[in-house]
Design a protein around this nucleic acid. Structure first.
Lengths: 213, 213
DNA sequence: CGTCACCTTGATTCCGCTCAAGTGTGGTGG
DNA sequence: CCACCACACTTGAGCGGAATCAAGGTGACG
């Protein structure tokens, strides 16, 4: 969140981020319709956001890792639109909306940073639309693995081995395919030596061939 | 754009929006990689935004009508990520980024309005992800027709008849299906009395059955 | 009035879904 | 600590919806 801010601006930001909150695995951080009283910056762990349509179908909108900020959709009409649930025991920074808005008003850098974060989220969603609109099943799975790998790498973790806390069902929902297709695709990737999996643990063995779809 | 702003705030906003620009049908307003020097508020007409992936597949990201603001993704890294092209002769307000940022700094209402616009765009993209991830072809086509209808209605136009300037190909791309499927679906809707079409002109005859997928 | 892009409709193919059965596996309570 | 149980995962068989391939038809514009 403080990325690109000076030490002074970061200090100002920290005055509004006074509380951390634990979210246990499976616990829901916010639901559609909740009042917009805070943004949440993920400190550790991972969450998924989901949206359920009128006819009851659930779609996983995103997988969110440490460093991500969630709840941004609520600026629109003052209410949350997604549901956010923890995939593992996680810790989030609570950023009270009122105080954060004041900070934005007083500090142009923080304000610009907010625009940047929201814009980055727009880009992320655009990428997801591209995946859902143009890729075949195996390409989607490869794209997910490479995306998670790159995001972890950017945060200083190993990029070739990680725990993907999503279930096969959630991965399928995120990618617009069924859990069976996800499972089969991962099995095939493993058979072809692209990856190794053991349950939720994923080891990428051949980045080039995974990139080549 | 000035929605929800006081007359004073609107006046302040208008000081930065000094130029209108015509964009002829087929003309490109901005491209991926262009420097972020302005946002664009659509005054009249319609545009499409598209994104082309590394392997050359093009995805229509959105259909943008009068009142919409485009170019918001560029806050992320200072460059445009989508391509915006006019679907018909259109007019857009040019909002120079530098001056707009100053206005945001000086005027908290304008700043809040920016957050709101970006958030609304996040919600719109979420809805598109939901469509691409969960709906079948005929449901997607129905969703598009109803979405356009509702947006026009909100702007005071008739909600049961409109000109959809997208080609079948673009509609298909937007919805993640092929142009043939779009064409067949529209024909079937017409045969069943849900709509009437004559080329790009669309007349909705039965909202209820269209809603019922 | 000819040309070109867009659209419609049909035939066939195939990718991913559905249905089904069996195999882990982690969390809980005895 | 172990046994159990619910839930998650894997794999197979068959089907179906949408893609692909193909062949006209339609309309806008110079």
């Amino acid at each position: 969140m403080p990325q690109g801010l000076s030490t002074n601006d970061t200090a100002r930001l920290e005055t509004v981020i006074n509380t951390a909150r634990m979210v246990k695995r499976g616990e829901v951080l916010f639901r559609p319709g909740d009042n917009f009283d805070a943004l949440y910056a993920i400190r550790s762990g991972s969450l998924k956001t989901t949206l359920t349509s009128a006819n009851g179908r659930e779609q996983v909108m995103g997988l969110h890792l440490g460093g991500d900020t969630i709840g941004l959709e609520a600026f629109d009409n003052g209410h949350q639109v997604c549901q956010a649930a923890a995939l593992e025991d996680s810790s989030v920074c609570v950023i009270p909306q009122k105080q954060f808005e004041r900070a934005c008003r007083e500090n142009a850098s923080i304000q610009r940073r907010l625009s940047q974060i929201m814009s980055a989220e727009l880009v992320r969603k655009s990428a997801q639309i591209l995946i859902l609109g143009t890729l075949r099943a195996d390409e989607r799975v490869a794209a997910l693995l490479l995306d998670v790998s790159a995001r972890l790498h950017r945060r200083g973790y190993a990029n070739d081995e990680f725990n993907l806390r999503l279930t096969r069902h959630d991965m399928g929902s995120l990618l617009g395919i069924t859990l069976e297709t996800v499972s089969r695709t991962l099995s095939r990737f493993q058979a072809n030596g692209l990856i190794e999996t053991r349950g939720k643990l994923i080891h990428i063995r051949d980045f080039n061939r995974l990139l080549a779809v």
